[in-house]
């Protein structure tokens, strides 16, 4: 069976984007997008977990029987999360402090489990790794863009504190878009999270419509009434 990597990549980045199409993993997508940097960091941690656990599941897919698969998946994700948690605590401590609770909560994020069950459990390791990685990158992109919009509107900056959180090399991307007193505080508070995420889904639908694709109504609401 030939694996179509191009579809996997485009699915992960755009058409099946975890947050904007499938509406999975909403908790970190709103809690950790008060700035673009936070969103990027959160997305990165999730991407690493997804790639690693997809690879592991695909490697052991013949041994994991149908009955025990969900508990095994959860344990694999939980171990990967623990590893990421410890690694970030050691090497990216500032970011670790910002993300806090939401790193262990990657375990209960719907997205990794959904991908493991839908893809990694049935595919060869390489394809699973690519799928996990690009789903994770798609997630990162969505989080970073939601974070960027909220940050620009809320505090007028973009990637503020990137050098502090991600490392000195990222000093160059710190930007100020609007003057300091122009920010709408509401945008970085919880209501802004809901509002901007909702509007981002609309923007994605607009793009899909222009490209002549079917709009995905997505999420739990899609059930026919």
């Amino acid at each position: 069976m030939k694996t179509d990597y191009k579809t996997i990549v485009s699915d992960g980045l755009w058409s099946n984007n975890g947050v904007l199409s499938m509406l999975l993993g909403l908790c970190p997508a709103m809690a950790m997008t008060t700035s673009a940097t936070n969103g990027f960091g959160m997305g990165l941690a999730t991407a690493v977990v997804m790639a690693a656990s997809s690879l592991l599941v695909a490697l052991f897919r013949q041994r994991i029987t149908q009955e025990i698969r969900i508990p095994v998946f959860i344990l694999i994700v939980a171990s990967m999360v623990t590893l990421v948690d410890l690694a970030m605590n050691a090497w990216m401590h500032e970011l670790y402090k910002v993300l806090g609770l939401f790193i262990p909560l990657i375990v209960s994020n719907c997205l990794p489990l959904a991908r493991l069950e839908a893809f990694a459990a049935k595919q060869p390791p390489l394809a699973a790794l690519v799928d996990g990685l690009f789903m994770g990158i798609g997630f990162t992109l969505a989080l970073t863009s939601v974070g960027a919009v909220r940050e620009i509107l809320g505090s007028g900056t973009l990637f503020a504190d990137a050098s502090l959180l991600l490392g000195p090399a990222f000093k160059a991307i710190e930007m100020r878009i609007l003057p300091a007193d122009m920010g709408v505080l509401m945008m970085i508070l919880p209501p802004g999270g809901f509002l901007i995420t909702g509007l981002m889904v609309v923007v994605k639908r607009l793009f899909d419509l222009r490209a002549g694709r079917e709009i995905q109504m997505g999420g739990a609401h899609s059930a026919p009434a």
């Binding site: 959860i74 489990l113 059930a223």
Partner: peptide, 21 residues
């Protein structure tokens, strides 16, 4: 807990502590 069954299949909610049996 994801309410609609349609979404449930794609959601981690059925993960923890759920078995078909």
């Amino acid at each position: 807990s994801c309410g609609g069954c349609a979404a449930a299949s794609r959601c981690g909610a059925k993960g923890v502590g759920t078995l078909a049996s």
